[in-house]
Design a protein around this nucleic acid. Structure first.
Lengths: 202, 202
DNA sequence: GCCGATTGTGCAGTCACTGCAAAATTGCAG
DNA sequence: CTGCAATTTTGCAGTGACTGCACAATCGGC
């Protein structure tokens, strides 16, 4: 399931147009936030720049924040799939480190978009609540995937949820540390954080 | 600084009235949410039940969510103070376990309020984003306190922020596990989670 | 009782977000 | 190509969160 996330052609005109519109709204939102800051942007402006009506905006995103953050259900599925596929010698926490770091790194495809997204999201403190809210979705998706990987019934065991939550928290803490002008670069800080977690905080 | 949080009397009439109004708004919000669910409650209703004007509501809380969650700056200071005070033989993570568990437990004073709060907050999934947003404030306060306790400059070291973030994430994961009908009671799950963290997730 | 400062309130306005029904577009069968 | 059904877009009207502002009420100290 989920081959590429972008070249993925279930292509009727309809599906393609929907993808384009969604993307156009996302890009318009990022543009405008970059120009004027999140709170100064209105949903009408975003819709206008994307070339659709104000009402249509809300057919694609449930809120202004969501349009800026722009995480799709497909992306969630992709992360979950990555976690389910077992690489030999890789622990769950190691896989989580890889996947979460990958979410931040500029991917091979869509390089500029990822980079821009990251810069804008990190630069807008007013989006912080929405971002951690978005993490809930990621956490749920990854928890379900880890449960499948471990072969336990959904919601039965505490451990998978703890593992995922701690991993996400570690990454988030590194981001926050960076936003506050802390030392070190993000990559190596994430490495350090996961090393610390693996060995125990006691 | 901060003796009791409730009996604390900087008592002029003014200060007392402000506390009363704040509390009245908070209680009214909890009442109404319990009766009709969060999204069906309006800020006007809350203000009306608390006996103040609609405009005054926003002099006390920046949003509807905040009125329900109701964490005060004083509470944050109190938690921070608890973390700063060193008990012999207690590690930072141990102190965090104690403090965070204490936030959920019905306190000696204000027992019913705490219990109600907890029940309502846990029962309203639509408040989840706001709750994790609120956690940011707690995380920042606790991180600053831990930095002082360890004697490092604010924002310089990565470690304190990681420790706090992971501790909060662990508690949050236990709550979520409970909301999803997971096994075990909250108390013992939190114990298990912190034991797991202390020994390492690797 | 009076004055300066803080707090409460009404008003007008902006904007996020929603339901609904009509219009436009697309996919498909004949 | 053409009409039909399903999907999507759009306009409209409305609700409610939230804000700035000016003014009234209240409080604390003299």
């Amino acid at each position: 399931m989920s081959t590429d996330l972008l070249t993925d052609e279930t292509c009727g005109l309809r599906e393609r147009k929907k993808r384009e519109t969604r993307r156009a709204l996302n890009l318009a939102a990022l543009d405008l936030v970059e120009e004027k800051g999140f709170s100064a942007v209105t949903t009408e402006e975003i819709a206008a720049r994307a070339g659709v009506s104000a009402r249509t905006f809300f057919n694609y995103f449930p809120s202004k924040e969501a349009a800026v953050i722009g995480t799709t259900g497909e992306e969630l599925e992709s992360y979950a799939a990555q976690l389910e596929e077992v690489r030999d010698g890789e622990s769950p926490i190691g896989a989580l480190r890889r996947i979460l770091a990958g979410m931040l790194a500029p991917a091979s495809i869509d390089r500029e978009l990822r980079t821009r997204r990251r810069r804008i999201l990190l630069g807008e403190p007013s989006l912080a609540p929405a971002l951690v809210g978005n993490n809930i979705r990621i956490e749920n998706a990854l928890t379900a995937a880890l449960e499948r990987r471990l072969g336990v019934a959904p919601g039965s065991a505490l451990e998978p949820r703890i593992t995922v939550a701690v991993a996400i928290a570690a990454v988030r803490a590194c981001i926050e540390h960076q936003q506050n002008g802390g030392s070190g670069d993000l990559e190596s800080n994430i490495d350090a954080a996961f090393a610390r977690i693996a060995v125990g905080l006691g």
